[in-house]
Amino acid sequence: MSYVLLVLAAIFVNNYVLSQFLGICPFLGVSKKVETAAGMGAAVIFVMTLASAVTYFVYNLILVNLGIEYLYNIAFILVIAALVQLVEMFLKKSSPSLYQALGVYLPLITTNCAVLGVAVTNMQRDYNFLQSVLNGFGGAVGFALAIVLFAGIRERIQYNNMPKAFEGFPTALVAAGLMSIAFLGFQGLI
């Protein structure tokens, strides 16, 4: 039960984008179309879940044993960068259209702070392996959920008649803020 709660908490209560404000760059950058947003979400789910698993081993087996925990940032970034490269190669081979659609944002997962954020959170909260993976998976699902919902909103407000000064990113930011407030409603759920 506690594992289910962990996943739900990661998705809704501690949503990485809307409650912790991590990973805003792809959240705003790739949310113009639901299709690409879903692709980005899927890529992040894959990278984040794997990153949580690998960083757990790297941290506990290597860094802790050698007493060099202070190197966690470098080690985690290394893991994430390698994983993103792997995902990029995989997508280029298996789904060129998704690869094209994600474009520059796919390599940007490397610097998606939500991915590093998950790894660091897992470490700080002393999660065991399963908890780490579930937290990573839940956090990524939360990211995907947020970005797909947001893309849906943006697709609809794109053609609205609005003052020139609000066209494009200003409305997107306002919408993101409102979504964040809406997600505040999940606080205290668990």
């Binding site: 290597i62 050698l66 190197l71 470098i74 290394l78 390698a82 490269q85 792997l86």
Partner: peptide, 25 residues
């Protein structure tokens, strides 16, 4: 230790990516 461990990680990942690069070429 830090040099070897981080360097080793980099090496392992690099080799892995190199292999993946051939598989997914």
């Amino acid at each position: 230790y830090p040099v070897l461990s981080v360097g080793g990680l980099g090496l392992v990942f690099g080799a892995g990516l190199g292999y993946a690069g051939k598989v997914f070429a």
